[in-house]
């Protein structure tokens, strides 16, 4: 049922507006980044010909490679900690009575609606040398001298976990909500113990949620440059800090673009894994 533009002016106007916006402000800029990553740095026009792969080569420069690996390490730690805290949390949350669940979910999305910069700053009040945590530990006699908590790798990971934990919990909660009780009973009736049920039934069924959570945590954990700026000092940088410096300070667009393509590529891989896990479940379930 294809009608012409004359017959449906409204439809045509809507489609032109939507497509126009996305092509101009999503597709074109992304193509530009891909293009910039294979061009040469230029002080006046930012990027210039000739085309080359220097920016990608620069990614493997030991100096930057170290920063990237360190950033990846902190992001992976963040993701693992979020998963370790979030998995049992989501399970427990899905077992609370429905009426209270609404309130608890509300409390979980409050952080999503509040200023992440301000919340990162609040952590600084707690972690500073003469901050609350050190004072508390000293008055309890656990430590004698204030410990250096701020401007460490640990502080960055704590900050990232604090900001990103809800993004791990929410997708996990939704898969636990869909986990049907009869499947678990069936597993029990077929003679599986608690552990076997967990590894053979619960883990595979909640895997899409795990992967969605990993995707929502791992990527921002490499990009949120203000967390190391506030909590980490100059030695604990994220890929996001490198990208920001290249674009705003060093004015090296090709290199900044190449670094951001690494992030995009990681995202594509994770999305692919997520789709795969869902499809597998779909086929088995049918």
């Amino acid at each position: 049922m294809m009608l012409s533009i004359k017959q449906q002016p409204f439809r045509a106007a809507v489609l032109v507006l939507v497509w126009g916006w996305l092509l101009f402000l999503v597709l074109a800029p992304n193509m530009l980044v891909v293009g910039a990553s294979v061009m040469t740095r230029d002080p006046s026009t930012f990027i210039a010909l000739p085309l080359n792969l220097d920016a990608y080569r620069q990614l493997f420069n030991p100096l930057y490679l170290e920063v990237f690996l360190h950033s990846l390490y902190m992001a992976v730690m963040t993701t693992l900690i979020c998963l370790l805290i979030g998995y049992p949390f989501a399970w427990a949350l899905s077992h609370v009575e429905k009426r209270r669940q609404m309130l608890l979910i509300f409390l979980l999305i409050v952080p999503f609606w509040t200023n992440s910069l301000v919340r990162t700053y609040a952590l600084k009040l707690i972690l500073a040398t003469n901050g609350l945590l050190n004072s508390a530990l000293m008055s309890l006699g656990v430590i004698e001298e204030p410990a250096q908590l701020l401007y460490t790798e640990g502080a960055v990971v704590v900050g990232l976990v604090y900001l990103l934990l809800p993004f791990m919990i929410l997708p996990l909660y939704s898969v636990f909500e869909d986990l049907r009780q009869d499947v678990l009973l069936a597993s029990h009736d077929l003679g599986a113990g608690r552990f076997a049920t967990f590894t053979n039934v619960i883990i595979p069924l909640t895997l899409p949620g795990v992967l969605a959570g990993v995707m929502l945590v791992l990527l921002p954990a490499m990009g949120l440059f203000f967390v190391p700026d506030i909590l980490g000092g100059s030695r604990n940088l994220l890929v996001g800090n490198v990208i920001k410096n290249q674009f705003l300070d060093a004015r090296n667009w090709p290199f900044g673009a190449a670094a951001s393509i690494v992030l995009t590529f990681t995202m594509a891989l994770l999305m692919f894994a997520h789709r795969l896990s869902k499809r597998r479940l779909g086929e088995e379930g049918a």
């Binding site: 402000l25 999503v26 995707m215 990527l219 921002p220 673009a257 992030l263």
Partner: peptide, 30 residues
């Protein structure tokens, strides 16, 4: 192209903010 449109919206939502940020900066400056 309905699927493409859907996919593009999904990508905008999922992609790290910083990637969107530099792509837009590039566009505006050019």
């Amino acid at each position: 192209g309905k699927k493409v449109l859907n996919g593009m919206l999904f990508v905008v939502m999922m992609s790290p903010e910083i990637v969107l940020a530099i792509s837009l900066l590039g566009l505006f400056l050019l």
